[in-house]
């Protein structure tokens, strides 16, 4: 499944120097941290929100918050974990704002998802894929994202962190400040809900 390939190459040891320098007010060092983690943070935010622009905003806000709070960051945890927590908080706020908006409309799975195309335009392309295949895949991905969007907030977080970002249960538990058992039960419910949501797609796939 190529799990390890998704993990960023930068480890906690690599971040340590940049973090220290950032704590000393060196903006260039913080920029290096942004460069390293922006992609991962953006993906997390995007899967949480299902909206590219909002995800970009959230990541930007999250890095700003992180820069302000970098002085209080203790290097006991990984920077990525800390950063993901901040992104999740901002994403949650964004979702709450969205939910509180009266005009929020429930989108049907059958809705036209053409807006999604532009947002995943940076998707790596396989030369082997035909145009039809590409279109099919985009539609399928859009459906999957819809199903993720339809998940309840806590289940969504766990699914994104575990099945997409492939964080360990311990990391997720420390991030969300819940025990492992709770993480697992939320994850199992999320997976079952996704399976139910994607039943049609799965049928098509045979």
């Amino acid at each position: 499944m190529g799990n390890e390939g998704r993990r960023p190459s930068a480890g906690p040891d690599d971040d340590a120097g940049f973090i220290t320098r950032s704590q000393n007010g060196e903006a260039a060092a913080f920029e290096a941290l942004v460069e390293r983690h922006q992609r991962r943070m953006l993906n997390t935010a995007y899967r949480m929100l299902g909206d590219f622009d909002e995800a970009c905003d959230v990541v930007q806000e999250a890095f700003l918050s992180a820069y302000r709070a970098i002085g209080s960051f203790r290097q006991e945890a990984k920077f990525s974990t800390w950063m993901t927590t901040i992104v999740l908080n901002h994403a949650r706020n964004r979702l709450q704002q969205r939910a509180s908006r009266a005009c929020h409309e429930c989108r049907s799975l059958d809705d036209d998802r053409e807006t999604q195309d532009g947002r995943i335009r940076h998707e790596p392309r396989s030369d082997a894929e035909s145009a039809t295949d590409l279109l099919e895949r985009k539609q399928r991905d859009a459906r999957v994202q819809d199903c993720i969007d339809a998940l309840e907030g806590e289940q969504k977080e766990v699914l994104v962190l575990r099945d997409i970002q492939e964080l360990s249960y311990e990391e997720i538990g420390s991030m969300l400040k819940v025990p492992d058992g709770t993480v697992k039960s939320r994850l199992f419910r999320a997976r079952l809900a996704i399976k139910d949501c994607l039943s049609e797609v799965i049928k098509d796939l045979g």
Binding site: M1, R39, F52, P124, L205
Partner: peptide, 14 residues
């Protein structure tokens, strides 16, 4: 299959 679909979601580029 569902898990596979989720994991296969493309990674978006910043």
């Amino acid at each position: 299959k569902a898990a596979h679909l989720v994991k296969e979601l493309p990674e978006i580029e910043p």
